[in-house]
Design a protein around this nucleic acid. Structure first.
Lengths: 370, 370
DNA sequence: TTGAACATGGCAAACGTTTGCCTAAACTGT
DNA sequence: ACAGTTTAGGCAAACGTTTGCCATGTTCAA
């Protein structure tokens, strides 16, 4: 009997690289006087391979010592790493944060750990993280607002499980979680028309992602459908940050021709940018110019009562992503999942910016008047 | 000579658990006709242990095949994992997102990968992640707004490298990155007094974290110092979400005694909650009640021109965190790092909510009038 | 000539798992 | 009693890496 049991970890002086104190299969096995295999099997629920007495003894030790299988060893062995990587552009964007939070919760419920990487919308960083996560045996990738990049293409070639969120696969195909962006644009158009807007406009980033393009097209098409021949002013701003972009685009748009009486901002952040530009020029929002956003950030209910916006149900994204990922890994080819959106009307009384609130409603659910 | 080289990965049909296609040391070794050890040493820059010819051959292969050492193998071996875990409560909070983004960038620059975990401010989830990350050989932990929990205490006992951000170690000691919260509270008090506020108040969560307590105390102490005997109304709201908390606390505060003419909201989110409560009651912000927040979320410059706030330089947190972590792992005992804050004045002209902007300034830097 | 020193590089253990296969012993049926 | 089956559990390989130690072969000085 091997009695010289290894001290598990034993803190080796300095705080060492590998966190000390982890109990391993070998520790349990030595103490129980059985082999690692036996402990491994019991720990994994294969109870039929050992006597009742052994099972009981090992289970007791596992519980007492608080043994938990080491995911690194497991990964290395080639099994599951229970690790999923999410690549998102700028965490600063509240919409991204909402997606990340929702997905994190769904993955955790499914027994996965999510590792969140901020790609800053840069193809090179997206590649860097794709590589880094692959070599950490990530079992799947969730790419929010993907950009085209060599490594992404390579990953697709290798049939790695990748779910695209918010923006379609730039190389086409693959599972996608999002909303019907054309319809959202159309809904925004309907809203502006219903509010009596006569001369609508639209601003958007100069480099159109599939998402934004669909929203703008849906908006324009619906306007053309309902008001044939109506000219809709349109202006773009620099790429990158949607706040800056909205600000710049609004200034460019209004530099010649003044302010429209209604405008589509294909993301809430662009609407925030426009709001600031309006403020600087003494233009009252929404009295003088009625914006409609897309996203409907949670903060709108609290501090942007002037903004009607198409609510994207980001809190539902998590479950959809996890389901897609599971299907994908199960070999099923999954297509798009389009989740339901709805326009949230605020600014019901144009005479003051503060009346969008509905005092009777509870704070978070915020139906926000009609 | 072992000529039957293993096909690296070879896609085994389905998208398999371990991402296929990774080149291993063994692949390079086989192709170069040398042993794994030799390749490992060369890959790690130990050039003196092989002939110039071998070194050249192996380096060429490494470059050609795009070999990158597998972090899992490395971790398992006991070396460095280059993995750092950040535990943050609710990613939804823009302040947390800012901290996460900044830290992520700093860690990446230092060659680390950050894994971001959303603890939802729950001790049990904090523990869960602490365990999960430890067994993934995280080399360090960054705990934002830590809460007391058994596993945290155990980690501290084991001298694991933990940096506390935003909220101090609930068990005392340890490196801390934050601001001088008492001073921030005092600055807020000075601001309100300078604005001519006569009857200031303060709202805060019922369960006071060290951070919030210091801010409130700094505020109250400064008021007492400059206006001895002045009674400052004070009210708390339910814990959890600061938006809801600010909303509820504002309603409770004003239910008896009406609205104060100035109020400290010890976080921006609480100010947002108060803003909504004010809106519902027809109270004009900041005309009737002047709030001052702490955080100064980036969005304030865009959509909350009514809110003056103490700016916490979250973009500087990343570097400070990484430096602390490095010191900690180097064996140095590091103390607190208090980064400079400053009050950002908005709402300069109380007659309209939209004049806080300074048209001359570039959008992002936003000095926002004085 | 004979060590010693050096150059070059391989062997094997170790990290923690999982799992196919093997070996005993015990039990079953005839 | 004996073949066959079941029960209980160990062996060892494999995943990818790092590194202490050993084994050659060469060079060099005394």
């Amino acid at each position: 009997m091997n009695d010289q049991r290894r001290e598990p970890g034993q803190a080796s002086g300095q705080a060492s690289g590998q966190m000390s104190g982890q109990i391993s299969l070998a520790d349990i096995a030595a103490e129980a006087g059985v082999s690692v295999s036996t402990v491994s099997r019991i720990a994994n629920g294969d109870l039929g391979r050992a006597s009742a007495a052994t099972v009981a003894k090992v289970q007791k030790l596992i519980a007492e010592r608080g043994y938990r299988p080491n995911p690194i060893g497991r990964s290395l062995r080639g099994g599951d790493s229970r690790l999923v990587a999410m690549l998102a552009p700028n965490l600063d964007n509240p919409a991204m944060a909402a997606i990340a939070a929702s997905t994190e919760a769904a993955l955790r419920a499914a027994g996965y750990v999510m590792i969140l990487c901020d790609t800053h919308d840069r193809p090179d960083l997206q590649d860097e993280y794709l590589r880094a996560m692959r070599s950490r045996f990530a079992e799947g990738f969730i790419v929010v607002s993907a950009v085209a990049s060599p490594e992404l293409e390579a990953s697709l070639d290798r049939r790695e499980p990748i779910v695209f969120v918010n923006r379609r696969n730039p190389y086409g195909g693959g599972p996608f979680i999002g909303i019907d962006n054309r319809q959202a644009g159309a809904d925004a158009a309907d809203h502006l028309l219903a509010c009596g807007v006569r001369a609508p406009a639209v601003i958007h980033p100069a480099d159109l992602s599939s998402t934004i393009r669909e929203r703008v097209e849906g908006f324009l098409d619906r306007l053309e459908e309902r008001r044939p021949g109506l000219t809709v002013r349109r202006c773009d701003g620099p790429g990158g940050n949607h706040l800056d972009c909205g600000y710049a685009a609004a200034k460019r748009l209004t530099a010649d021709g003044g302010w429209p009486d209604g405008i589509l901002c294909p993301s809430d952040l662009m609407a925030y940018g426009l709001f600031r530009a309006a403020g600087e020029q003494g233009v009252r929002i929404p009295d003088d110019c009625r914006p409609v956003g897309i996203d409907d950030n949670d903060l709108n209910d609290w501090i942007a009562p002037w903004l009607s916006s198409v609510k994207i149900p980001y809190q539902l994204f998590g479950d959809a992503v996890v389901a897609s990922l599971r299907d994908l890994r199960g070999g099923n080819s999954v297509g798009e999942v389009l989740l339901p959106h709805r326009l949230v009307r605020r600014q019901s009384d144009p005479t003051t910016v503060l009346t969008g609130y509905s005092p009777a409603s509870p704070p978070r659910s915020g139906p926000a008047a009609g």
